[in-house]
């Protein structure tokens, strides 16, 4: 290759690698802060700050949702199959909210370790299925997790 072009090729590679290194180091330094939410295990380990606005994410534990008779207050437990966190929320839940579903809640963790949420978002997983297939799988006693 002609030496001038070779030099330019090296410069281009150096730009690309330099940028990649800088961004890589930045992401490495920021890595924990780039998580959108804390998991219940992180909260159990005391990694999440108390009384500060944070997000937590996990699966809604089966049979844990309880509603107060009047008003919109709802309490449920979220889990990552290792630790549990109780969430208290007043408001309208998204359509996809149900037991066993992943959610992300925005709010504060109080001194008692209860998460007081002011926003609940449903997290959708990467699986899509027609309703008939889901029905057939349920009838066969075949929960989705085992399918994978």
């Amino acid at each position: 290759m002609n030496p001038v072009r070779k030099k330019r090729l090296i410069v281009v590679f150096m730009i690309a690698f330099g940028a990649a290194t800088i961004v890589g180091l930045m992401l490495f330094a920021l890595s924990e802060n780039l998580n959108l939410f804390f998991t219940p295990s992180q909260i159990a380990n005391g990694e999440a700050p108390l009384e500060k606005r944070i997000r937590i994410g996990g699966l809604v534990l089966e049979d844990s949702v309880s509603r107060v008779k009047t008003g919109l207050v709802v309490e449920f437990v979220i889990t990552d199959n290792v630790s549990h966190v109780t969430v208290n929320y007043e408001g309208i839940l998204p359509d996809l909210f149900r037991e066993g579903q992943g959610i992300v809640a925005n709010g504060r963790l109080n001194q008692q370790g209860v998460f007081v949420a002011d926003e609940v978002l449903a997290k959708h997983d990467e699986n899509y299925m027609p309703p008939e297939a889901m029905e057939a799988m349920k009838n066969a006693g075949h929960p989705m997790e085992e399918e994978k």
């Binding site: 959108l36 992300v104 449903a122």
Partner: peptide, 12 residues
């Protein structure tokens, strides 16, 4: 909006 409950979230 209908699925998560929000238009936008500052996730990665």
């Amino acid at each position: 909006k209908p699925t998560w409950g929000t238009w936008w979230v500052w996730d990665a």
